[in-house]
């Protein structure tokens, strides 16, 4: 979906249309941009940049608080359309998914036509625009989907894969961030295809164990299947504070609130968790995590909050000023599933 959160806001609030809009986590705090409308992007406002910088770049920026309930409704409508076409839908986020349309319920032989029809259906049913990439594999489809935005459609036919690969810089790859990209550039690897000629040792030095994977991508090879039931492994929230926290009561209250929101997420997803993890970043940017696991799994908000708060005792929070706090839940269990992944736990507790 194109500028998803921002587009939903513009759709629902006509006053925002045609204006630079950014959706934020919390504008009072050291938040970052969650989504920027295309009008805002013209000023250089991008998602994940700090709010303060966004406002400097675009003084007329309209800052909107997020309303995830509305985004989720829009997302569900979009995914419902996907699932009409094929059951092989692998969600990447609320607004992005891989679809394997080799076989599709429309009986369309051409991926391009499926994509065109999907885009039209999405627009008709949600009033939002989407961009699509059609390619022989996941990695190329992902890059193609971002090639032309908004309302774009990029098709990489098998015969044109090589031509397309030749154009790609290394950082076009998902998972190659600025740091990895600069490490590769230092070694003379600018384009994805430069990886083909790179020495294995040099590559390994730059990207470690991803070397073989990158090499396959450089040849345009990606055999990963579209996995419709990819499991969620964890969920969590974190907050960066505009003023470092030094009051232990305030820190506890923050952790308590985040733990409760994680419990609420478990409730919505009808899952249980065995592990609760907290994250603390001190004012010197050292970041630590502390975990507590316990069986049986739970989604009881009181219990999860109490466990998260007591984990604070194993940190220097408050003794050292705290810049960021986070709470997440892991080792999830689906009580409705026929088996939990490793089976039930031995009854150690009386």
């Amino acid at each position: 979906m194109d500028a998803f959160y921002a587009s939903v806001e513009q759709r629902d609030k006509p006053a925002l249309r045609g204006k630079p809009v950014a959706v934020f986590g919390d504008p009072d705090k050291r938040g970052v941009v969650a989504a920027a409308s295309y009008e805002a992007r013209a000023f250089g406002v991008r998602s994940a940049i700090p709010m303060a910088r966004a406002v400097r770049l675009c003084p007329d920026l309209i800052i909107v608080r997020p309303d995830f309930a509305r985004y989720r409704t829009a997302s569900q409508a979009v995914f419902a359309i996907f699932r009409v076409v094929t059951p092989l839908v692998e969600p990447l986020s609320l607004d992005e998914a891989y679809l394997d349309v080799t076989e599709n319920s429309w009986g369309e032989p051409l991926g391009r036509v499926v994509a065109e029809r999907l885009k039209a259906e999405i627009r008709k049913s949600t009033g939002l625009t989407a961009s699509a990439g059609v390619a022989p594999n996941k990695f190329l489809a992902k890059i193609a989907s971002a090639w032309k935005k908004p309302d774009g459609l990029t098709v990489i036919a098998p015969a044109r894969v090589e031509m397309f690969l030749q154009k790609l810089p290394v950082d076009a790859l998902w998972g190659v961030g600025p740091v990895t990209a600069s490490r590769l550039r230092e070694r003379g690897i600018e384009r994805l295809v430069d990886i083909r000629a790179a020495d294995t040792e040099v590559l390994r030095e730059a990207v470690g164990s991803s070397a073989d994977w990158l090499r396959r991508l450089a040849d345009g090879i990606d055999d990963r299947r579209v996995e419709p039931n990819r499991e969620v492994k964890s969920s969590g929230t974190e907050n960066t504070y505009s003023q470092d926290l030094t009051d232990i009561y305030e820190i506890r209250a923050e952790i308590d609130e985040m733990a409760r929101s994680a419990a609420a997420w478990l409730e919505r997803k009808e899952l249980l968790c065995r592990t609760v993890t907290i994250k603390v970043r001190y004012n010197d940017f050292t970041t630590i995590t502390r975990s507590h696991s316990k069986a049986p799994a739970t989604r009881n908000a009181e219990e999860i909050a109490a466990r998260a708060v007591s984990l604070l005792e194993r940190t220097d929070a408050a003794t050292r000023p705290v810049r960021l706090l986070g709470v997440s839940v892991h080792n999830l269990e689906d009580p409705a599933a026929p088996f939990s992944p490793e089976g039930p736990v031995l009854p150690f507790d009386p």
Binding site: R274, S291, H292, S293, K294, A295, N331
Partner: peptide
């Protein structure tokens, strides 16, 4: 003793086990 127990140790760092 080592060979008969080593495989049943959890690989994850779960504190509880």
């Amino acid at each position: 003793m080592v060979s008969k127990t080593q495989f049943a140790i959890t690989g994850e760092d779960t504190r509880y086990f």
